[in-house]
């Protein structure tokens, strides 16, 4: 479904990504974990062509997207949805308009069809009854749900999640994790989740990639990651900084 080969990214003097190789099978959920600044979100943006790599290749459903022009990327992006860390809801639009946006842009003009699909998408994310609210009047968890509804309404083959549980309380985080899992089971979507929330990783991952200083440090099952005796991985899992009081 999605593959990356030899991906590097340099911004100024800083080497953000150092030769990433990854493959995500159809219907699989890959969780990319790593410390803040390790290049997780940058990697995610490369997967959908929102950023251009310094070198390397990115394939979506077998098609190489590096080197394509912005307008050539647009139809490909419609098969891959992305949920942004800050949700990126259009703040001038209501919840209903935000969720309906991809449908309208896809050319759907029938108000009845749009309303029904929006209601269905909001039901999937348990947010029925908030259609007329503006994003500014929503809590963090609700914004995440709206962002997710906007992504899934067009039934993309793959969904990229950038820190889906960041800044949420444990209960809301848990409900988002369930939602990601449910979407994968219900619609069979391929998912790539960037997070540093280990609970989230444990809940949704089929495979885990641990990113460290722009390179894949570990790739495998979540259980193997937890069982690893590597001090770097253990420090990350246990949340040890090594600093002293």
């Amino acid at each position: 479904m999605l593959a990356v080969a030899g991906l590097t990214k340099q911004i100024g003097d800083q080497q953000i990504l150092r030769g990433i190789d990854l493959q995500v099978a159809s219907g699989e959920t890959l969780v990319i974990i790593g410390r803040s600044g390790s290049g997780k979100s940058v990697l995610l943006k490369h997967l959908i062509g929102l950023m251009l790599p310094s070198s390397g290749e990115v394939f979506i459903e077998g098609r190489q997207i590096v080197g394509l022009k912005e307008r050539q990327l647009l139809p490909i992006r419609k098969t891959v949805g992305m949920m942004f860390q800050g949700c990126a809801l259009f703040d001038a639009m209501t919840v209903e308009e935000n969720v309906a946006f991809p449908l309208r842009e896809a050319g759907e003009r029938n108000a009845g069809v749009i309303r029904a699909k929006v209601a269905e998408a909001l039901e999937v994310v348990d947010l029925t009854g908030h259609e007329q609210k503006l994003p500014v009047n929503l809590s963090g968890g609700m914004k995440k749900r709206v962002a997710l509804a906007r992504v899934v309404i067009t039934r993309p083959h793959c969904v990229l999640y950038d820190e889906p549980t960041a800044g949420l309380d444990p209960v809301v985080s848990d409900s988002i994790n369930h939602l990601i899992r449910r979407l994968q089971r219900q619609f069979g979507v391929t998912s790539i989740v960037v997070t540093h929330d280990m609970k989230c990783a444990g809940h949704v991952a089929d495979k885990v990639a641990f990113l460290h200083e722009g390179a894949i440090y570990f790739y495998g099952a979540f259980a193997d990651l937890v069982a690893s005796q590597d001090p770097l991985i253990q420090d990350f899992i246990q949340g040890r900084s090594g600093d002293k009081d």
Binding site: R71, A88, L89, P102
Partner: peptide, 14 residues
Amino acid sequence: VTEQLDALRSLGVH
């Protein structure tokens, strides 16, 4: 700066 432009692009809109 709030990634709404990236969101537009990710939804296939220039």
